[in-house]
């Protein structure tokens, strides 16, 4: 980031995501907060960006399909079938002769 104490709007905009993800260093955080105190446009922009950060992609365990337990039972059955086929595979006759 810039070595100036006063950030431009563009520089402030560029670090908003890192700031909200907690990945901005202490000095840069101070510069950003200083800029937001002085710039009304950036302050409004930041508030909106923060709302998006809170809402976008937020995991909301969706309602699982009503038949999820059956789906999982079917998955487990296919898994077990696959394993048992593998385990019960006839031994290679050549193995015994070696």
């Amino acid at each position: 980031m810039s070595s100036r104490i006063l950030l431009s709007c563009r520089e402030s905009y560029q670090v908003l995501s890192d700031y909200l993800d907690g990945e901005l260093g202490a000095v840069d955080r101070l510069w950003l907060r200083g800029h937001l105190m002085m710039c009304g446009k950036c302050r409004t922009y930041f508030e909106q960006f923060r709302r998006v950060h809170q809402l976008a992609g937020r995991p909301q365990p969706e309602d699982l399909p009503a038949d999820f337990e059956e789906v999982m039972a079917e998955v487990l059955r296919r898994w077990k079938d696959h394993d048992s086929q593998f385990l019960k595979k006839p031994a290679d006759p050549w193995d015994e002769e070696r």
Binding site: Y13, L16, S17, D18, Y45, R51, V52
Partner: peptide
Amino acid sequence: LRQVLHRARASVRRCAD
């Protein structure tokens, strides 16, 4: 990833606005 995330959030903000 940080750059993609930033641009994604900025795009969503602009669309939501």
